[in-house]
Design a protein around this nucleic acid. Structure first.
Length: 538
DNA sequence: CTGGGGATGGGGCCC
DNA sequence: AGGGCCCCATCCCCA
């Protein structure tokens, strides 16, 4: 547990505080715990007011045509079913955005109404005649305390109830794995760090796969995005649905890490950067890791984001990325870290230790990667070259930034540099950084608004968004195109790219086949790069 | 826009 | 199995 929380609990237990009065007794670090007992009631009351007025409601429950605006966070707090549903979808604590409708025809409208009243008032008000419906609804939605209370009133035990209700219905409804990717979620995910973006919409764990709802119909419970707002989101959703058929990851299967990308663009995922086979992945890791081989270690699945964490004992470390817990505190400056090894490196700042020394100059560094970067300055090597403008960078992340920033509009006007990483024929040596980078940098033209036809579609030339590493940015822009097309003016380079793909590139080279389909464009672009490299060698 | 420093998170190896 | 240590990729920030 977070030591701060420990302190708070400790202080709450030791410092007597009367309601409404603040009796402070600074503990260690001056932390005090001041309880506000009425806060929870007031909070619930305000939430109920919001529900009644529809304010901030982001989830609508329906039952036989009746609609109940509600809040996802409240439903997730009160219902195991919604907790699993939203937790599985949104990687735990980061969800909550978006709009959705959840059809709950298996719960009687009156019962659903009563359960919602309970959720927002902590009081269950139902006619005795409706008790059984409420019990059924509470069981289906995983509201245990209500189910227990109903059983008490009905004079039934859970076991007796279990005989009456089929085993499948006894359990709370399982969150369906029909992943609802709503616009807000899409945009939100895009805003997250790349590392987060690598986190999956992974195949749901077995327990989250659809179970039969009432009457054995899995469609009895389903949630779907409000489609009118975002075609891109629906497209994404539909693509991710295809993942449902994928088997759960096996122990040696690392696919879950990147299968979100596969779901979006399988072709891109099969590029050099994303070896498709486990063996390939191992080889890639081996290359990147300087010869390290993957050791078979028990992978564990994160219960929050479903990411498969490789390495024994690594799951707690990963979990702290969700909880935000930083148990390791610097004794010198108080800065906290999620990991012990990061704290250790941090301590070098205070000790002055710089263990990584440059063999060419007196420079010393805190981190090994700093030395690595520094060495590239001595060598002058710029092994990471933009395949479009052929500008070379010493660091791979700088090349990525160069491409992501869409600053590379001077397409192919520079000649490829001839460095040690290039073979005599001008081609790339296998395994060089260039060859690794070539594919992801390809812009994969795709008309994202095709069939978009909604009110939010914009006129003029079709927008064409880059794909590959810019995939999620592309999704954000798709969302933007639908929701606030006027704001796309902030992205003039996208229009430029669209024109390039449609005609601008023709000014560089005629299109002998006259084929302009996006897929063919992608292939042709790749071919052109290869062609030019051949030309360079001649 | 680029170069450089630093931070973060994941994976491999070892104890 | 859990954790320490290390390396790596990637990201953010600043000059």
């Amino acid at each position: 547990m977070d030591t701060t929380r420990q302190r708070l609990l400790h202080l709450q237990g030791t410092v007597p505080i009367k309601m409404g009065k603040v009796a402070m007794s600074p503990g260690e670090d001056g932390l005090i715990g001041i309880p506000f007992p009425e806060h929870s009631n007031e909070l619930l009351s305000h939430l109920n007011d919001q529900r009644r007025t529809g304010l901030l409601c982001d989830l609508t429950l329906t039952s036989h045509g009746a609609r109940y605006p509600t809040h996802r966070s409240v439903m997730a707090a009160v219902s195991l079913y919604f907790r699993r549903l939203f937790g599985a979808e949104e990687g735990g604590g980061e969800g909550g955005g978006g709009f959705s409708v959840c059809q709950l025809d298996c719960v009687a409208p009156d019962a659903l109404d009563a359960l919602l009243e309970f959720a927002y008032t902590a009081t269950l008000t139902i006619p005795s005649s409706g008790m059984r419906d409420v019990l059924r609804g509470a069981q289906l939605l995983g509201i245990q305390c209500v189910a227990d209370a109903c059983r008490d009133i009905l004079g039934e035990t859970a076991e007796a109830e279990g005989q009456e209700v089929s085993a499948g219905e006894q359990r709370p409804l399982q969150a369906t794995c029909e992943r609802t990717v709503e616009i807000a979620n899409v945009v939100e995910k895009i805003s997250r760090r790349k590392t987060d973006r690598k986190k999956p919409p992974s195949p749901e764990p077995e327990e989250l796969h659809p179970k039969l709802g009432q009457n054995g119909d899995p469609r009895a419970i389903r949630e779907h995005g409000r489609g009118a707002t975002l075609n891109g989101g629906l497209l994404h959703w539909a693509q991710e649905r295809s993942l449902i058929a994928h088997p759960p990851p096996t122990q040696n299967d690392k696919l879950s890490e990147d299968d979100d990308m596969e779901g979006l663009d399988g072709d891109m995922m099969r590029s050099n950067s994303f070896p498709s086979s486990v063996a390939d992945r191992g080889a890639a890791t081996s290359v990147a890791g300087g010869g390290r081989k993957r050791k078979s270690q028990t992978p564990q699945q994160c219960p929050v984001c479903q990411k498969i964490i490789h390495g024994a004992g690594k799951l707690p470390r990963h979990m702290r990325t969700h909880t935000g817990e930083k148990p390791f505190q610097c004794s010198a400056c108080g800065v906290r870290f999620t990991r012990n090894d990061k704290l250790k490196i941090h301590m070098r700042k205070h000790t002055g230790e710089r263990p990584y020394t440059c063999s060419h100059c007196p420079a010393r560094f805190l981190h090994s990667y700093d030395l690595k970067n520094h060495l590239s300055l001595h060598s002058g090597a710029r092994p990471f070259e933009c395949p479009l403008c052929h500008k070379a960078f010493a660091r791979e992340d700088h090349l990525q930034r160069h491409r992501k920033g869409h600053s590379c509009l001077e397409l192919r006007t520079r000649r490829p540099r001839r460095g040690p990483e290039l073979g005599e024929d001008g081609g790339e040596k296998e395994g060089s950084p260039l060859s690794l980078q070539a594919h992801p940098s390809m812009f994969h033209p795709r008309s994202v608004l095709e069939g978009g036809g909604g009110s939010g579609s914009i006129g003029g030339p079709s927008l064409i968004f880059p794909s590959g590493i810019d995939r999620e940015r592309s999704l954000a822009l798709q969302a933007l195109a639908q929701l606030a097309p006027q704001r796309l003016a902030s992205y003039p380079e996208l229009f430029l790219r669209g024109l390039e793909m449609q005609g601008g590139r023709d000014s560089e080279r005629e299109d002998p086949g006259g084929t302009r389909s996006p897929a063919l464009q992608h292939d042709r672009w790749a071919d052109e790069v290869e062609d030019e490299e051949v030309e360079e060698g001649e």
